[in-house]
Amino acid sequence: MEKKGKFVRMSLVEFTGWLNANRFDRQIGVIQNHHTYIPGYAHFKGNNHIALCESMERSHLERGFAEIAQNLTVFPDGDVVLCRSFNTIPAGIKGANQNGLCIENLGNFDLGGDVMSDAQRKAIVTVNARLLMRFGLPCDTDHVVYHHWWDLNSGQRTNGSGNTKTCPGTAFFGGNSVAAAQAGFLPLIAAAMGAATNPPAPPQAQFQGEVNTPSLRIRDKPGVDGTQLGAVANGALLAIYEVRNGWYRIHPTAQRWVSGRYVIKRE
């Protein structure tokens, strides 16, 4: 995590924790997706996240904005930077700001522009999913929206007709139309929401065993050359998740092994 003034750079894990730990005073009903166009990938050096946000803010101030327009910026390495407070209405889409939350995805995602990195692709999907879940919103094109769908003059939603920007880009997850979002973007967000709410079931133990020695060493791999991590006492019941060369793994995911020689199998 890196902080400078209001700008806070976070990993996806840190952002999820921050989002769930904070309360917000403003009702959020629309998640706006944009691309920065400039700055793009050529301007990103891997460690200048906040400097680029400061540069964008200077540009926005020159255009008459009160501060940086977006609430959040997603970078090519998958990190995110908090920008304008979530409690402050963004300056993202004329006609859709009141209950909006503005995400700027760094890059030019028009056809022929930047090729989105896998890390940024994952982060964009994850951020949208976490925001929908946090604010209790459905995954559809009424709640996940593109700048391209609003007319710049009237502030009315036209789904791409009239005087519009290409933002978030004609190649953004397959295109910037409503149909493209429904086909190439929303299913990924929905899958990410499902993965978060329905984590994989934990591994099931193969059987149980009872320790039959005064103190049974726990090692980090199956063998006497493994580093000792602790011990279990005589009579302890252990869940056995894997058997390998006479050694038993006693943790569902971590490498925690004991010698099967000192464990009596219980049915």
Rank of each mutant, 00 (worst) to 15 (best):
H251S: 09
D79Q: 13
Y37P: 00
D142C: 02
V8W: 08
M116I: 13
E242S: 09
V13A: 10
E57Q: 15
N234H: 12
P199G: 13
C53H: 07
A96Q: 12
A66M: 03
G78F: 04
P222S: 13
T166C: 04
H143D: 08
G136M: 01
V81N: 05
Y41K: 05
N159A: 10
G17Q: 15
M56F: 08
D25Q: 14
L137K: 01
I189R: 07
F135C: 13
G95K: 04
A42M: 07
R63F: 01
L229T: 07
F172C: 12
K45S: 00
A42W: 01
I124K: 01
I103R: 12
A119M: 08
V211R: 01
A179P: 01
F172S: 09
G40H: 06
R58L: 10
E67L: 08
Y37W: 10
T16D: 14
M56G: 05
A254S: 11
V145Y: 09
A254Y: 04
I189A: 06
V127H: 01
P199W: 11
C102N: 15
L82W: 11
H49R: 09
A179C: 05
L52S: 09
F173P: 01
F109G: 00
A196S: 00
E54C: 04
Q32R: 04
D77L: 09
Q32D: 02
P214M: 08
Q204L: 07
G29C: 13
Y41S: 12
E210D: 00
N108D: 15
T73I: 14
G5W: 10
R9A: 12
F86K: 02
A233C: 05
T126W: 06
T213I: 15
N176Q: 10
T141G: 06
G162H: 07
C53T: 07
G194T: 10
A66V: 06
W149Q: 00
R58F: 05
N97G: 08
R121Q: 14
G246M: 05
D142G: 10
W18I: 05
A192N: 06
I218D: 02
Y241Q: 07
D118E: 09
T253I: 06
H34P: 01
D220A: 11
Y248E: 12
L132S: 14
L229V: 13
K3S: 13
P138M: 11
G260L: 08
D151Q: 04
A96P: 10
Q70W: 14
G169T: 06
V144K: 07
A201D: 12
T126F: 00
I124Q: 08
W18C: 00
L238D: 03
V211G: 00
N20L: 12
T158K: 05
F7G: 03
G226C: 01
